[in-house]
Amino acid sequence: MSRCDLFQFRLYVAGDALNSAQAVSNLTALCRAHLVDRHEIEVVDVFREPQRALADGIFMTPTLVKLAPSPTRRIVGTLSQTQPVMQALGLEAVGA
């Protein structure tokens, strides 16, 4: 994986629910630490855009979808356990 790859994230949150807020801050922290200047985060509030959640098949919140680089991955939860998240995103080697 090239270091120049742009990471596109979409984070589905449920309004101002606590776990959603935690997910947002966890993701931001992770990007700041490992993906400086090469990430995009789109936050989708399922309360505001339920049809979008429906179309995308989002049933659990918060859900993080990594759109790029492929393959797409989904991670549900607050993203509090950094190690599994890093592994799922394919970022293990980056930090090392």
Binding site: Y12, T61, V76, G77, T78, L79, P84, A88
Partner: peptide, 27 residues
């Protein structure tokens, strides 16, 4: 509504069914 959890779904930390309920609410 297909709501089967994907087999490669990674779970990290707490989550809830708010997304589903919001989608259902609309539906």
């Amino acid at each position: 509504l297909d709501a089967q959890p994907l087999p490669d779904l990674v779970q990290s930390g707490d989550f809830d069914l708010g997304g589903m309920l919001a989608a259902l609410e609309a539906q």
